[in-house]
Design a binder for these strands. Structure first.
Lengths: 352, 352
DNA sequence: ATAATTTCCGTTACCGTGCACGGAATTCGA
DNA sequence: TCGAATTCCGTGCACGGTAACGGAAATTAT
């Protein structure tokens, strides 16, 4: 960057009349330096604009550090599988500065498995942690421990309200995404009259539920643009294709005038079989996240558009942020990073 | 990646009974090695799965290499300003492995300035080049020289048909983007009847014009979905706000039934003043690229949606690809990288 | 056969930092 | 005042790879 020749720790040493050992001690302020020497070194560092050589540092440190990624287990075709795939992308690129990444999974419906995963992470003594905080209380207990041990951590996907000592957060602006979703569903037209919201019943409590905020954004948009629109609710359960199909059948029998359908989580693919058995060229269908099954439905035209947040990118960015902090103690430019909401349609899905 | 302890060049040397000097010579095949030794070293490298330590290598090499970026001059608010901003993003991140990046600009309407820029690039003796090839013939002459000198190069934005020795290409699928554009303009509805295409007259020849392919994709979509739609053409000239305004005025006077407006280049902002003086809630307006002026119009609702290709990302990826190739001789996974076409609306423009 | 090349290879001094070790200088206690 | 405990600091090796240098071995010329 600076056109001046690169100045090294030795230059600082010579300039201050001290040795590089001492300079190194003040650079990593690990004590054993007199106030006078410390001040002198700092002064010269400022003056010459010293910037450490990353590569020499990484080389000398040798043994690579560990970053733990703590996310729900990634069943095939699930949202979290996408996130897990970001780990590999992160690992191969040069952005992680040769850091080691390890995946720790937990069952998103079992709080004990989360606790267990947390303690496994702590045992691994990571230099940094990426966590998807589905269980609010437990997450805070966990990050409290991390903070106590001076281990930096980054949230992805969502973020507990009350935690403010995280290094960063990468996620989607949920409320806004609901707003955008409504705009997509209605194609920007006013006075839409009927919409069905298909929802997945959550029996477990104490989880943070991103769909709440999304639904809020969605409903506010509808209130503004189509005030007299009736919003139907239909609850389905996962892993029950027949039940889902049947529920849709009977619901639409009762509400034959309803056209557009929306879901606020990543499982729009669950209702695709019914939709494809009952085609309607005027129906618009909007869902979230770029799961393979969702993309397929998009390509076939069953789903009109998807709003994607690319969890793999979130993981990659989270890991790189931690790597730069751990290795170069470089703070991220922003703490809260709201990621771009990608609108996917059948016409741009091939290139994303 | 491999759980095995990392093996170094010294391990190879010990295992082969040779010295690390020799191993280094075969690694960079710079000769002065007997066939027998060469084979032996290669064998052991395979066997142990040796992977060089990037950081040690970079440290030892010392002086950083140069990548030249050759793009049209970036007037404020222009498309190429976005591209130029990608250089800084690339420079600061760790992805470029400490490589030096230098910008070489040319006047996109002056072929001589392009020639001049090319020779300036060659004088700088770069280790790699990023080119935006607006002038087809001249670009081929230039890349021919690069090839002769063994300098790798990457295309962004567009790519000459006949060049196949480039390292990679990053750009938007132009035809498809026109298709997508049409879908956005019509909101997916069939039998739209009237559309105006505002175009910028190109007086210079021999330039590659991305809008041709876009328009083709657009018209094919319209032919499929709204066969009897009439497509109006209106030609404007840049840097002539009054003339543009006047032309729009008289055109719409003659065609009062036309609602939707589209432009295939990045200059949709040129017609925004007229549009805002003649508001129409049913009108849809679609353009390309995330210029600041376009984004503003999007926020105000004057422009319905923009299709963005993020030229800064193209530059960043191009530079990182070159860096990995130059420093680690790692080939990119794909040569032709069609980038995601981002659909921007007023509801997702804040977070991109 | 000996000298002159050429081919091939080992040695060695870096690159810039990190960090352990030991010693000098200072302060403290008696 | 003298030894002991601190405090502070310099030295030197290690990290893994690069490349110049010079010399031994093999080849060619005379």
């Amino acid at each position: 960057m600076a056109p001046t020749e690169k100045i090294t720790i030795n230059d600082i040493a010579r300039r201050t009349g001290l040795s590089k050992g001492t300079v190194d001690r003040v650079l990593h302020n690990r004590g054993e330096v007199s106030k006078k020497s410390y001040a002198k070194v700092m002064e010269v560092i400022q003056e010459l604009g010293y910037e450490p050589n990353v590569y020499a540092s990484l080389l000398a440190k040798g043994g690579s550090q560990l970053v733990a990624v703590l996310i729900p287990s990634h069943e095939p075709g699930s949202f979290w599988e996408l996130a897990a795939s970001g780990i590999e992308k992160a690992a191969e690129g040069p952005g992680t500065l040769g850091i080691r990444i390890e995946l720790f999974e937990y069952d998103q419906y079992d709080i004990d498995s989360f606790r267990d995963a947390c303690s496994r992470v702590l045992e691994a003594r990571p230099a940094g942690v990426v966590v998807a905080p589905l269980f609010q209380e437990e997450t805070l207990a966990f990050t409290g421990k991390l903070k106590g041990q001076g281990i930096p951590y980054v949230f992805i996907d969502s973020k507990p309200e009350s935690d403010d000592s995280n290094l960063a957060y990468f996620g989607m602006p949920l409320y806004k995404s609901g707003y955008l979703c409504a705009d997509q569903l209605t194609a920007g037209q006013e006075n839409v009259t009927n919409v069905l919201m298909v929802r997945v019943r959550r029996d477990r409590l104490q989880q943070s539920d991103p769909t709440i905020n999304r639904r809020a954004g969605f409903m506010d948009y509808m209130l503004e643009h189509s005030p007299e629109c009736t919003l139907g609710n239909l609850f389905i359960t996962p892993n029950d294709p027949n039940g889902t199909y049947f529920k849709l059948d009977s619901w639409f029998q009762e509400h034959p005038d309803v056209k557009h359908v929306v879901m606020f989580n990543s499982r729009i693919h669950l209702i695709v079989p019914w939709l494809e058995d009952h085609p309607d060229p005027e129906r618009r269908v909007v869902g979230f996240d770029n799961l393979a099954a969702n993309l397929d439905a998009l390509r076939r035209g069953t789903v009109t558009s998807l709003i994607a947040q690319h969890p793999d990118e979130q993981v990659r960015l989270a890991v790189e942020t931690l790597a730069e902090y751990i290795l170069l103690k470089k703070l991220p430019p922003r703490k809260d990073n709201f990621m771009h909401m990608d609108i996917l349609t059948r016409y741009n899905v091939e290139y994303y």
